[in-house]
């Protein structure tokens, strides 16, 4: 067993799979000698050589387009986009091609690529370095969208993403890259890409979140317990496909649901979860579904980002209101 932070777990998952499959290549901006601006690829070029781990010119569209070309000819491409805020230059390649290549050719050409990108706010970074636009990708048929929230899940989900035969957007919550360690066995075990994780069982209210927001959500559950409210906490983890069955099972038990996400509210992933609960489980609800989310504003620059991001207190307040609903 190893004691790893999330960034270390990501680094070791990459290395584990690179050792297992010689057709995997890792590339992007500053991923080589520098090991990535967050050190996700630290030491990988030394171990696997410049042939398999390399820096590219600064051109996101070409990085993703190149991944598609590589994947079509039997390689497994793991591309790093340095920050999610810079992925938009590559959006045409992701939406028009990565997500569609299998369908367009009826399976003749496929696109086993992983696009890794740090995302989310809370690290006092410059403008464009704190985006949470996972819903944009979740809307696109043909993609998978995965967001880990702990070192162990980062390890297992990244391995699953690399082994998956279709394109995966793997968003890494950079605020918790180094937020505590977990004991992880470097055994190459993949976690499922279509299941959420129940992190805390409870009977009164279901709290659903993902990524760095799990931290505030779990803390809120802890404080709610002191007030006599027993919350169930679910880490969504796989944004697409979305494991609504596990959420429904939980809400059938609790009758109440709060969805917490950092991204803007309108058409966020929370809206999809709420819609599906309404479609499939409305009679089990004892109170309206609540969303605790970022606002429909630009993510403020860092002096004000704490106002934008859901806090533990906002989650608790929303949970109490939901419990009081009659």
């Amino acid at each position: 067993m190893n004691d790893w932070t999330m960034i270390e777990a990501i680094n070791h998952a990459l290395a584990n799979q690179m050792r297992a499959n010689e057709n995997i290549v890792i590339f992007g901006e500053d991923v080589g000698v520098n090991g990535g601006v967050f050190r996700a690829t630290d030491g990988l070029q030394t171990e696997f050589g410049e042939r398999r781990v390399f820096d590219t010119p600064l051109a996101e569209s070409a990085i993703i387009g190149m991944s598609i070309g590589m994947a079509s000819q039997g390689l497994i491409a793991i591309a790093e986009i340095q920050f999610m805020g810079f992925i938009y230059s590559a959006i045409d390649q992701i939406l028009s091609h990565a997500a569609r290549l299998r369908n367009r050719t009826r399976g003749r050409l496929t696109c086993p690529i992983v696009i890794r990108a740090p995302f989310g706010g809370g690290i006092h970074a410059p403008e464009h370095h704190s985006e949470s636009t996972e819903a944009m990708f979740a809307h696109i048929p043909g993609l998978r969208v995965v967001i880990p929230s702990s070192p162990a899940r980062a390890y297992g989900l990244l391995i699953a993403a690399i082994q998956d035969p279709d394109p995966v957007i793997f968003l890494e919550p950079k605020r918790i890259y180094r937020d505590g360690k977990q004991a992880i066995d470097d055994n190459g075990q993949a976690l499922p890409l279509d299941s959420c994780f129940v992190l805390r069982e409870g009977v009164d209210i279901t709290l659903v979140s993902w990524g760095a927001m799990m931290k505030e959500t779990l803390e809120a559950a802890k404080q709610l317990a002191q007030k006599g409210i027993d919350a169930e906490v679910i880490d969504l983890a796989t944004i697409k496909p979305l494991d609504i069955d596990s959420i429904i099972a939980s809400v059938n038990k609790t009758g109440r649901c709060i969805i917490v996400h950092e991204a803007a509210r309108t058409c966020g992933v929370g809206a999809e979860i709420a819609a599906q609960l309404a479609e499939k489980s409305i009679t089990s609800l004892l109170a309206p579904i609540q969303r605790v989310t970022g606002y429909d504003t630009v993510m403020p620059m860092f002096k004000n980002e704490h106002f934008y991001m859901p806090s533990t207190q906002r989650i608790i307040y929303s949970a109490i209101k939901t419990m009081e609903y009659r």
């Binding site: 387009g65 070309g69 000819q73």
Partner: peptide, 19 residues
Amino acid sequence: PIATQLCHAIGVAFALKFQ
């Protein structure tokens, strides 16, 4: 989508060289 295929070509070229 115009010109997007050029990016695929460099990936294909990379794969051919890699192999």
